[in-house]
């Protein structure tokens, strides 16, 4: 495991190229959370799960900053505890999205 193999490089490349889409997806979850219809708690869960996914994969691909920020944001968007303020959610998710944007 000296240098990444070609396949892994390709995979990393693929991941990097997917960051823009992930940014769009995160934005849409955030938007849905803020303006969507139906139960707000379930919308928060969806957002939370997306952050969860992001935290996992970003860390695996070496984007430690995104992973950390996403985990921080997961703590804010945890629907099991008290319902967070919309503004708090927005703030923390925006920090994640800004990082994504930086890398995308």
């Amino acid at each position: 495991m000296n240098q990444d193999s070609v396949k892994i490089q390709q995979l990393k490349h693929r991941y990097r190229n997917s960051l823009a889409t992930k940014l769009e997806e995160l934005d849409s979850y955030l938007f849905a959370f803020e303006f969507g219809e139906g139960n707000i708690r379930s919308r928060l869960v969806e957002l939370h799960e997306y952050l969860h996914k992001l935290a996992g994969s970003a860390g695996m691909y070496g984007y430690d900053d995104i992973a950390k920020m996403a985990r921080d944001s997961m703590a804010v968007t945890n629907a099991d505890s008290e319902m967070p303020e919309i503004i708090e959610v927005k703030d923390s998710v925006t920090r994640v999205r800004d990082l994504l944007e930086q890398h995308a």
Binding site: E25, D27, S28, F35
Partner: peptide, 14 residues
């Protein structure tokens, strides 16, 4: 503008 637009794109992707 960007936030709602991004959500349009996100939903379109989905």
């Amino acid at each position: 503008f960007r936030t709602p637009l991004a959500s349009i794109m996100g939903y379109t992707n989905l």
